[in-house]
Design a binder for these strands. Structure first.
Lengths: 111, 111
DNA sequence: AGCCAATATATAGACAGCCTACGCACCCTG
DNA sequence: CAGGGTGCGTAGGCTGTCTATATATTGGCT
């Protein structure tokens, strides 16, 4: 599945996979893919701008680590990020409920 | 809730409310709002271009009706539209499953 | 040694689709 | 006759994902 469909929910995904501990960009892509059972394949061109945006918003912080000669940028949730994640989870449930009600209305419901 | 969050799922909503019979634009807005329990408030500037797009794609057909001196454009599902709706319902379930798995992972699931 | 794939970060420009804001026209009520 | 609801529609803007590309290290294959 393309991240195009995820538009507007990407931030929640990124925050969610960072909940259990810091990860670097590539590992975030792998984590999202694994958790979604392979359904979600994010691209680097998608997540790096998104991660920068979340950091600007104060929901993430980052620090550089070096493994051998390889640079890795580790992102971690801030307290604000944790609160935002909780909000986004609630919003997600309301969202799916609303869309689901329109897409698959309960029989007998008014037009 | 803003239709902004619905990005990419708007088409399914429009097709779904037209499943039970033709409606005109304003009635479509009302139907979506009612079915979603008031959560989804679409704007005319959003749905008219979307309806035109769906008609261009052959998923909808339209005909003008006149009530008094008022012109109304009634949209109805085509056969292709009906098939597309079924596909979109399946896609919606896969979508929510995938996002949900990332956002609220089952405890014990791998990182 | 040379080459390619995987790992890893990052930017530029294109594009789709929803946004706000407006315009037009008709109808009914105060 | 003014205002608000109904009804259709367009223009221009904005956000966020897309593709494509660039750089650099590491490791496997031949």
């Amino acid at each position: 599945m393309r991240a195009d469909a995820v538009r507007g929910h990407m931030d929640g995904l990124l925050l969610a996979v960072l909940e259990r501990g810091p990860l670097h960009g590539y590992a975030i892509i792998a984590a999202v893919q694994e958790r979604s059972g392979g359904a979600l394949e994010l691209r680097t061109g998608t997540i790096y701008p998104a991660l920068n945006r979340l950091e600007r918003l104060g929901l993430l912080s980052s620090d550089w680590q070096t493994v051998g000669e390889r640079r890795r940028r580790h992102y971690r949730l801030t307290d604000a990020g944790r609160r935002s994640l909780a909000t986004k989870r609630t919003a997600w449930r309301e969202f799916t409920t609303a869309i689901g009600a329109v897409l698959d209305p309960a029989p007998g419901q008014a037009t």
